[in-house]
Structure formats: C-alpha cells, structure tokens
Amino acid sequence: MTAPTTNANSETADLPSDAPPIPEGATMVTVKIERYNPEVDDDLHWESYRIPALPSDRVLNLLHYIKWYIDGTLTFRRSCAHGVCGSDAMRINGVNRLACKVLMKDMFAKKGETSITVEPIKGLPVEKDLLVDMEPFFEAYKAIKPYMVTTGNDPTRERFQSVAERERFDDTTKCILCAACTTSCPVYWSEGSYFGPAAIVNAHRFIFDSRDEAAEERLDILNDIDGVWRCRTTFNCTDACPRGIQVTKAIQEVKRALMFRRR
C-alpha cells in the first residue's frame, strides 16, 4: 500500500522544527490547496505543501498538519472526523468527498511522488479557503418543508408504521446535509436556483413516509421550474454521497410520483 518513493525521514528540511516527529512508514506527499482569503487576496490561487503522510491518514489529518504546523490561516470546517457530521465536504482530486473519509492509502500514486489537490465544493460562494457559504444550500432544504406534517389530534402513543413502510424511505433518512451531492451537480453549478439533490432527497424522506400528510405540497414545490425536472440524471450526486444514498434513484422516484401523483 505504501508509495514507491523515498522514506519521509530523509527529507524534513522544509518542515517546521517543532512539528511532531515523522512517524515510521510515512511518505512525503504534495498537497495542493486552492486558497482564497478576501481579506488579503484579490483572487483564488494555489498553494502547495510537502508533508509526511501515513497510509492510515485521512486527508483531514493532512489539512490539520498544514494548519497546525505550517500555515495557521488555512481555513476549513470539520468536527466529528468520522463522516457523520457533514462539515468537511470538499473537492479532493476533482471529486466531492468528506476529507475525514478519504484514506491516504487509496490516494498514493502508483508511480512517482503523490500529489493531491483540494478545492472548496463548487456552486456555493467561497468565504475563505475551503470554507463556503452554506446558506443557499440550507435555504433550498428549508423550502421543501423538511418536517413531518400531520393533521388532527396526535395519538396517545406512537403512530403505527409497518416494517415495510419504514423501509420505504430508509435510504434517504441517512442524509447528513454535507452538500457533497448538490455541489457535484452540473445543473446546480450553472443554475443556483435549482433546489439540488440534497433538498430533493430530504423531500423524498417525507414524501414516502407513511405518517406524513404533506406529500402533495412538497410535490407541487418540486414540480416548479427549479424542481426535479432540472435533474439530467448524471449520477454525480450518487457518486458523491458519503453516506451511500442512492440519490439519483430518490430523485427519479420523486419524478415518478409527480408523473403519476401516487406513491
């Protein structure tokens, strides 16, 4: 699994003297990051960092190394570091991934020195480095009424739902709102007014929940000019989803529900 390059211990010249010792088995890699800080920069630019990486490191570890020991101004969001909070979606080697779920062992070049590129997700305004403005994304989410709507009195105990009814929307309950799908969508890149895959996934989660009573409203919302019909079925979203949700399939199911007005 290790890359066929020289051992990292032999070349530490560029690293700060107080950086942690390079662990055994580490390889030097180059991380190219698209940087932008409107406080000081006129434009986006690339910066490269040569740092040690272990096969078990995640890309997030590398970003932390750069931030903690080389350039404290490097800015990105992260929290849980194991793929459940959805903070660190970014473009890694041109595809949307969570930085905490990409292992370096899968990134090492087969020949020559490994170089990886990291950019902010596309289609949302860059605020600083890898950190983007998430507000448009959450606005689209809120627009599809992402909450259960019921009428009449609540039952004394739980609402009943069969195992099969619960299973019907299981896949779309996994969404962590990381925006990896929406910002991988070429339609979203060119038309920011498109609701985008994540909002449709969350509409699906309620449309196909047997307990919910607002499916028609949500379907009407998604029948809009910026709704599901914009989807060109490129499957980028499905590939991008770190939770393995069948995003394109969910969108197709919503389309079908609209065409036949039944679930």
Binding site: P155, R157, E158, Q161, F206, D209
Partner: peptide, 17 residues
C-alpha cells in the same frame, strides 16, 4: 413518543410499534 410524533423514523416491530 414525542420524538416519534415529531417524525423520528424509529425501527419498528412486526406489529408496527
């Protein structure tokens, strides 16, 4: 029960509870 009424998708028993 409050969470269920708010929409939380709990796993279900064969009886739907």
């Amino acid at each position: 029960l409050d969470l269920e009424k708010m929409g939380l998708p709990f796993n279900r028993t064969p009886e739907g509870r």
